[in-house]
Design a protein around this nucleic acid. Sequence first.
DNA 1: AATGAATGAGTATTCATTCAT
DNA 2: CATGAATGAATACTCATTCAT
Lengths: 181, 181, 181, 181
Amino acid sequence: MPTLRRDARRNRDSIVSAARQVFASVGFDAPLDAVARRAGVGRGTLYRHFPDRHALAVAIFEENVREIERAAESAVDGPGGFDVLLRSVVEQQVRSPGLVPAVLSGTETSELRAMGVRVACAFAAPLRRAQEAGSVRSDLTTADVVVIVRMVTAVVDAERDEGRRRLAAARALDLLGRGLG
Amino acid sequence: MPTLRRDARRNRDSIVSAARQVFASVGFDAPLDAVARRAGVGRGTLYRHFPDRHALAVAIFEENVREIERAAESAVDGPGGFDVLLRSVVEQQVRSPGLVPAVLSGTETSELRAMGVRVACAFAAPLRRAQEAGSVRSDLTTADVVVIVRMVTAVVDAERDEGRRRLAAARALDLLGRGLG
Amino acid sequence: MPTLRRDARRNRDSIVSAARQVFASVGFDAPLDAVARRAGVGRGTLYRHFPDRHALAVAIFEENVREIERAAESAVDGPGGFDVLLRSVVEQQVRSPGLVPAVLSGTETSELRAMGVRVACAFAAPLRRAQEAGSVRSDLTTADVVVIVRMVTAVVDAERDEGRRRLAAARALDLLGRGLG
Amino acid sequence: MPTLRRDARRNRDSIVSAARQVFASVGFDAPLDAVARRAGVGRGTLYRHFPDRHALAVAIFEENVREIERAAESAVDGPGGFDVLLRSVVEQQVRSPGLVPAVLSGTETSELRAMGVRVACAFAAPLRRAQEAGSVRSDLTTADVVVIVRMVTAVVDAERDEGRRRLAAARALDLLGRGLG
DNA sequence: AATGAATGAGTATTCATTCAT
DNA sequence: CATGAATGAATACTCATTCAT
């Protein structure tokens, strides 16, 4: 469905946005009704756009991934691009609570797996440049980057309050950056 | 309940063990019925021992924490004790899948918080010794250790198969140990 | 609506034909959506032509009844006309599966009742001729003919496959024709 | 489940009885809620006993078939046993409206097929005796008997009112008994 | 006029929790 | 005490019908 009627598009967007908020405050197992209500649409409309909860998670992540891809394109230049990109991804996680269970329960899904690949790809160039500049160890792969994001996200998601989430993220990045030794 | 009739004790243990298995294979949101059935007890019995799902999670973690405390006591001696202890905790996570949602959804609970503290305490002496020996950076706190465990667990729990979980754990520990730079 | 714009007419026909197929394969309680989709029209169009499921059933039966009336006109001549007509009606049932629930649930409707009357009328002349020739017992009424059709239909509709439906019809007609004694 | 707790048994029976009434007055597609309500039990109880609508139909038919089997046992004696048995089955249909859709929609099911076989078996001895006495044509099989029952049932179920149902049954039996010729 | 998006009432279904046996 | 039957609130989901485009 590349082209969607204007109003349908608006509804779809409302729903995804509502899902973000509801999942953030109630959890990923929130009633889908609550999502529909907050989006201001009927049950059926929700179901038309997203046949199940998982489809909703995919849509949310899709937006996140796209944002990461955009960030990757802007940040390609210097050797510090990797760090900037990583921090922007972490910041995204700080502001998007409640999605970890979605990731975990859906690891199997090919869609989510594909998104992981896209995130890895987005990091490819900046990572290479940083490694060439010597600011990142040379055996780090893009798969490792995804792992790193996952680690930070886990720490972040242990907190509710945004400020504390940001603090937790910083500490996690610090531990990761300098190593334990 | 320090003293429990022998058979009641056996029931309780069956239930916790069943809960481990069920949560591992179905997920933490499995029907409690499934737990009771696998434990071979009636609904009422499960209910008598554990008023709700959370109590079950606490009981499971209680066993885990106790195991950690035991490991901490055995490993106090050398400067490598910290590393050994950390690895044993990680190994425990490798073998206990499906509990992350429990941790995440229950972070607020005082019981779980208390267990975090106990884990931190268990690490206190080994950590201090490792820092004195210079094998671990001196600004690392026991709270950081809990954070580290959380990070590794998140990576581990992205996999189902035990072998892959162990591999994932190793990579996460490697990233953490040597740092990104 | 005797006069209908050419394209509207085509739409209407597509819908009735689609309804036949869908009711046959899914059952009379199939979603009307499925009918619209198979007809290649929008929901609204289906709705314009047929305000509800019942109207659709009526339209299908209307075609059937008209076919019976045509058959009756061609077969008026000989004393065997009754038998030929009855067999052609039965053959129609063999080829139109899934309509029994429609008949049953809609017995009350005046439209369907009227159609029953039309079927009875179609049989009037052939029946009289057959009775005069002595090949059909004289106390048989046209109402009985409708009953007979219903009986055969019930037996036919217990089968899915067209071949078996035809076989079942033959057996039912045989039982009816020769009596049990 | 050969032995069922006394109260559970009572509930089960209430449900089947309620289902009979509800299906008779509302139709086989009545909301299951209505059945539960009329039985005076909760939704869950209905589901515990009967996982779906079909299971309910099977239970109803089971009672019917058992009644037929009992009738068959009492009526074995004379050559008129066949006729008596057939009439008692027809009378059962007269008093159990609304089940035809159930039969039709479930023809495929092995349970229902098995019940058809049981009905056929019940008729075996009486049929043989009647054939030996010459009161029933010799090529009639027990499968034909099931067909006959189906035919009568179809005619009966075209009426709502019990009196008219009985009348319709009589006419159908008459047509069948004497044949059309 | 045709389309298909939106609506929401109606129904199915699950499962935590209570309670009779 | 243990059991598992019963309950019903909560939730999922479908689909007839309306209506904006």
